[in-house]
Simulated scan of single mutants.
Amino acid sequence: MAAMALLTVAPVLMGQREPVLVPEVSQSRVEVRQGFTGADLLLYGAVIDPAGSASRTQYDIVVVLKGPSQPIRLREKERIAGIWMNSGSSDFQSAPSFFAVAASSPIEEIVDPRTAAIYELGTEFIQLSPTGQIEPEEQARFARGLVEMRERLGLYKEEPDGVRISEGVLYQARIALPSNVTTGEYTAETFAIANGRVLASATADIEVVKVGLEGRVVVAAQRWAPFYGLGAIILSLGMGWFAGRLFAKS
């Protein structure tokens, strides 16, 4: 498939000066079933230089895999008079549910911090879009706390040597999705970088979906939300009544 893509874009490169990325992914659909233990994604492709073999440009490759973004409120707990209580909070409008960066070299050796921030080339550069009235230093502290929490859960990660480049043209990266991933649309964005500049980028889409009984429950909850909610209430009331009768007899 990658070879066919290369043949397709080759004629277009004749009039170009910048490199072109041709990305592929081992599976564009990840099915989450009961007992799902995670999945390994292979992201691979080629960086094509219009100068061909005459070019001596050495490219670095960075792959950023992001899951669907969600709003989140992060609360901080503090022990007051021996009781743990909420002492502060911060809201973030678009925190990615999953974020992984794989690179052919450490990011700080490839680009400067400003470029890394523009393209989100690292967990410290995730654009969380904080909202509300809070001091910038406090926002930064809450943002670091969110990143650290999700790193412990395996949802945010960095792999500075996670991309292998062959013959200066072909690249591949493996990124593991943990069992607790959120379903939805994922994007894998690949960047070709040389001399501290991002010269080309390309995006591949990956869909993570629940299938089987869990998938049917999710679809039912989305399509018939009022009936699903009513059914859940009736079921909980029925189980409560049955438990009450059972213990009353005993």
Rank of each mutant, 00 (worst) to 15 (best):
E120D: 08
A103H: 10
L146H: 02
E124F: 02
M149I: 10
Y119P: 13
S166W: 15
G122M: 01
E137S: 08
S104D: 01
S105K: 13
R114S: 14
R152G: 05
L153M: 11
S166H: 15
S97P: 02
G132F: 01
S166Q: 13
G145K: 02
P113Y: 11
F142N: 00
R152N: 09
V147D: 03
A102Y: 13
P106L: 15
E135W: 15
L146S: 01
A117C: 14
A117P: 06
V101Q: 09
S97G: 10
T123Y: 12
R144D: 09
Y156L: 09
E137F: 12
L153I: 04
E108M: 03
A100E: 07
Y156D: 07
G162W: 06
Y156S: 03
L146C: 01
G122N: 00
Q133F: 10
E151P: 04
E135A: 13
E151F: 14
T123S: 11
Y119S: 08
F98C: 06
R114F: 15
T115P: 06
F125H: 13
P136R: 09
E109K: 12
G162H: 08
S97E: 09
R164H: 15
L155G: 01
I134F: 06
S97C: 07
R164Y: 13
R164S: 14
D112A: 10
E148N: 04
R152S: 07
Q139H: 09
A102E: 08
I118P: 13
E124I: 04
L155N: 04
F99T: 06
R114L: 13
R141F: 00
Y156G: 02
F99Y: 13
F98K: 01
S105D: 15
E137P: 06
G162F: 09
I118L: 13
S105F: 14
G132P: 03
L155H: 12
Q133W: 09
Q139A: 02
S105M: 14
G132Q: 02
E158M: 02
F142H: 01
E137C: 07
S97D: 05
E148Q: 11
E159W: 11
V101F: 04
E137M: 10
D161T: 08
R144I: 11
A103I: 09
I107W: 06
G132D: 02
P106I: 11
F98H: 07
R144W: 06
L146Q: 06
G145L: 03
E138N: 15
I126D: 03
Q127K: 11
R150T: 02
I110H: 04
A116C: 04
I107V: 07
I134Y: 05
E138M: 09
V163D: 03
S166L: 15
E109F: 12
R144S: 10
R141A: 08
A103W: 12
S129H: 10
E120R: 01
A117T: 06
A100Y: 02
A103V: 12
D112C: 05
E151D: 07
I110P: 01
T115V: 09
